[in-house]
Design a protein around this nucleic acid. Structure first.
Length: 484
RNA sequence: CGGGGUGUAGCACAGCCUGGUAGUGCGCUCGCUUUGGGAGCGAGAGGCCGGAGGUUCGAAUCCUCUCACCCCGACCA
């Protein structure tokens, strides 16, 4: 390798999107496949993204009156069986714990001890509606106990046939919120409220434009009366369900016995909601923003918002340059900017490419020249080397927040442009079929009435399409597309 | 679970058809020279060739069986 390859990531998005996706994750050092099938190891740089997501969203839900709690990983089998549709939806992807002890087998290898077989097996939570419902049933007695809004940040496990790192792993991290209300109106309203919290989070923090919509009946959460979703379009034109909020009616209240005495003194079942976002959002981030040189982190969740590369020509410069950088770092940190200094031994070029691949939004170079001039050189990751510019340290300190916001806006604008250019209105099923026969990569939008009937089923099956949602701002329409 | 593909050094691969005891590039270690967009030279370290059987004097290579991973589908956040 004499000079740098054309792109830091091979293959390019154009050449092989799924492979490109995996290479970006590797190049940015975010995660890797674990020795356990379908599971991933999230590495520090990837986990830092999740921590930022957690922090921002956790603050938001607390403003909405939600309290965090923690419920067990293991759910009694009998709990899962309580809600008919729920069982049907999750039964085929549950990991089951059947023993509580290991012993040496005939071949000397460890095996579950026959004598330690559980009377009733436990299911590793695929979601916690039932066990939280069980708790709520005990905690809620009066309308005065309502609304009750609980959330937990945890892992869940759904045995996946085809795992994809971050997008669909058997074990993943998420938050699941579970709210209970006196009546349908409050609960439906809450479902919308939580969906809006997700939509705002996706757009304002992740720079991912989303379509807020309601799922069609066959795409609903098992056991829900209504499922709301935010749907995003990835760079390959596929849809990604980025968050869901469910109105569960009284289904779980009835199966879990969540009853309360109403204002009228009558015993009633509560109306519940549940809502979740997961580490899948990290995948969404990559497929929304990354390019052929690697990741591009939206500034508000970027582990490092500003990356500083000291350019040391000889040892005599070092102290002067480093103390110059320390002053800058202090100014940035005072504003709450997350700064990373790459003072490793590596060469300048390597450090630059490292930051490019990791998607650090704003890169700063400081060497003897800058120190002499009282300036610094900065480059935006989203715009590349053409955006390289020079300014004084004070000017930079004053404008850095604005630059980060501009990067956010630019990433959002790009994603929105790509999405809007790839939504096509179709007037009938013939047009829908023709569109996807022609290898269209994007969303089709059409009258929701068209999804009834065998023709729609045949076309969607043939082209692996699904009804993504009925947009809240156009409920008589439906968005159709391929999805992750 | 069906169809396709791949497992050889940390990573990417060659070697396999035509068996003879493992190689290239990057990375890593050390030294010197370099250093503002992926450095150069020199010297090193590192692999029971995914696993288990079998054929053979001899297997990374041939045969059988397994396991894992990736892609495409069905299922799903």
């Amino acid at each position: 390798m004499s000079k740098k390859a054309k792109t830091a990531i091979t293959p390019t998005r154009e050449e092989n999107f799924p492979e490109w996706y995996q290479q970006v994750i590797k190049a940015a050092d975010m995660a890797e496949n674990a020795p356990v099938r379908g599971c991933m190891t999230i590495k520090p740089y990837g986990y830092a993204v999740w921590e930022n997501m957690q922090r921002i969203f956790d603050d938001r839900i607390k403003e909405l009156g939600v309290q965090n709690a923690y419920f067990p990983l293991l759910i009694p089998l009998e709990f899962i069986s309580r809600e008919a549709e729920h069982v049907e939806g999750f039964a085929k992807e549950c990991a089951v714990v059947t023993h509580h002890r290991l012993e040496a087998g005939p071949d000397g290898k460890l095996q579950p001890a026959k004598s330690a077989k559980l009377e009733e097996p436990y299911v590793i939570r695929p979601t916690s509606e039932t066990i939280i419902g069980d708790a709520m049933a005990r905690w809620i007695q009066s309308y005065r106990d309502l609304p009750m809004k609980l959330n937990q940040w945890c892992n869940v496990m759904r045995w996946e046939m085809r795992p994809r790192i971050f997008l669909r792993t058997s074990e993943f991290l998420w938050q699941e919120g579970h709210n209970a209300f006196e009546n349908e109106e409050q609960a439906r309203d809450d479902t919308h409220k939580m969906l809006n919290a997700y939509a705002e989070f996706a757009e304002n923090s992740l720079a991912i434009p989303v379509i807020r919509g309601e799922k069609t009946a066959d795409e609903r959460f098992p056991g829900a009366v209504m499922t709301l979703t935010i749907e995003a379009m990835m760079q390959d034109g596929k849809a990604l369900q980025a968050g869901t909020s469910h109105y569960l009616g009284q289904n779980f209240a009835k199966s879990c016995e969540i009853k309360f005495q109403s204002r009228e003194g009558v015993e009633e079942y509560a109306h519940t909601t549940s809502w979740g976002i997961s580490t899948r959002l990290i995948g969404a981030l990559i497929m929304s923003h990354a390019d052929d040189d690697g990741m591009i982190m939206p500034p508000r969740i970027a582990p490092h918002q500003v990356g500083i590369i000291p350019i040391i020509r000889n040892d005599a410069d070092t102290d002067e340059i480093m103390s110059y950088i320390d002053d800058l770092v202090a100014k940035l940190k005072a504003q709450g900017i997350r700064v990373n200094i790459d003072d490793s031994e590596g060469r300048t070029g390597d450090k630059m490419w490292g930051m490019i691949k990791q998607g650090v939004p704003l890169r700063v170079e400081i060497g003897g020249r800058e120190v002499d001039e009282g300036t610094l050189t900065h480059t935006r990751r989203d715009l590349g080397r053409d955006s390289k510019a020079s300014c004084s340290v004070d000017e930079f300190a004053g404008s850095v927040q604005g630059i980060l916001d501009a990067i956010h806006d630019e990433l959002y604008r790009r994603a929105q442009t790509l999405r809007d250019e790839n939504i096509k209105d179709v007037s009938g099923l013939g047009e829908l079929e023709a569109l996807f026969k022609d290898n269209f990569a994007g969303f089709a939008r059409m009258d929701v009435a068209l999804i009834e009937g065998a023709d729609y089923e045949r076309i969607t099956k043939q082209h692996s399409l699904t009804s993504r949602c009925m947009p809240l701002d156009a409920p008589d329409k439906v968005i159709v597309g391929k999805a992750y």
